[in-house]
Simulated assay, not measured.
Amino acid sequence: MTGERPIGEDDLQALVDGRLSSSRRDAVKAYLADHPETAEQVEREIEHREALRTRLAFKAQEPIPSRLRITNLVAARRRSPLVRPATFAAALAWLTIGGILGAWGGVWWTSRAYMQAAALTVADNAIAAHRIYVGERLHPVEVPADQEAHLVQWLSRRVGKQLIAPNLNAQGYRLIGGRLLPDSGEAAAQFMYENVGGNRLTLYARSGGNEAQTSFRFEEQDGVSAFSWIDKGLSYVVSAKADRAQLLPIAEAIYKQFEATSDPAKGRL
């Protein structure tokens, strides 16, 4: 809005904390309406904050012990020039419980923002690699599908995590091979698939995810759709020229197959 300062992290954190001024509320809401990804992140932060409030609600509802009430503390101080350390610590704990929520929210927001930025970088790199190689007719892959065992072993060793080449026959795609790619100083694996119509799909995987697990994140860039997620230290991105409804079951199938290989109770594929 003309004449107003740009929307910043302080505004978004204030919205999450429930302390955004009314004069900024309309501007922030307009900003979020134009930035749906940020709006989704803000909504998640609000949910996390409310969950934290719920966990600590029992403490906030407890009555303040009489010995910690201000009048009694003042009276005790008048009787003795020294306040016992234990009493002072207890009073401080009660006074700072509200501050814990605000501090936790700020730390959570910062760490989540950093991880979101990292996830976006991996997804952007995966989509860029998809664009480059799906159009190749002579050399779309380094190692063809008839050497799948070697391909998986090679890429797993270079990425540093056990990989598989998911079987997507049920989704109408067959593996045609894969290749090794660089990604921000890390090794990344790309598996390529093709359906009977000649449309190609790629699965991109690299180590370095900062979270144990994240939910699916969808984005679309100039006709290429992608679902990305993090699971057990690996970042995954599946990309194709397909709409969200078509790509989601494929992403879910890939996720389930990787889960099955990492869970001994489910066995290996």
Rank of each mutant, 00 (worst) to 15 (best):
M1A: 14
T2L: 15
G3V: 08
E4C: 09
I7D: 01
E9F: 04
D17S: 08
R19W: 10
S21R: 15
S23V: 15
D26R: 12
A27G: 03
V28S: 03
A33S: 12
A33Q: 13
P36M: 04
E37I: 13
Q41S: 10
V42Y: 05
V42E: 05
E43Y: 11
E43W: 07
H48E: 11
H48G: 03
R49N: 13
R55F: 14
R55A: 11
A57C: 07
K59P: 00
Q61I: 08
E62K: 15
P65E: 12
S66E: 11
L68F: 07
T71Y: 06
N72H: 09
V74E: 06
V74K: 09
R79S: 12
V83F: 02
R84M: 14
R84L: 06
A90Q: 10
W94L: 15
W94Y: 14
L95S: 13
L95K: 13
T96D: 07
W104Q: 11
W104G: 02
G105L: 07
Y114M: 14
I127R: 01
A129S: 15
R131L: 07
I132E: 15
L138P: 03
V141M: 05
V141G: 06
P144V: 06
P144C: 11
Q147D: 09
L151H: 00
V152D: 05
Q153A: 13
S156M: 03
R157L: 04
R158G: 03
G160S: 04
G160W: 00
A165C: 10
N167A: 02
Q171T: 09
R174F: 03
L175V: 03
G177L: 01
A187M: 11
A188V: 03
A189F: 05
A189T: 00
N195I: 00
G198C: 09
N199E: 15
L201R: 00
L203E: 01
L203S: 01
Y204L: 00
Y204I: 00
Y204R: 02
A205S: 10
R206C: 12
S207C: 04
G208M: 02
E211N: 05
Q213G: 08
T214I: 01
F216S: 02
Q221L: 09
D231E: 15
D231T: 08
K232C: 06
L234K: 02
V238I: 13
D243P: 02
R244N: 09
R244H: 10
L247N: 03
L248S: 05
L248D: 04
L248T: 02
A251C: 04
A251Q: 01
E252Y: 02
K256F: 09
F258R: 02
A260N: 05
T261S: 12
K266W: 10
L269P: 15
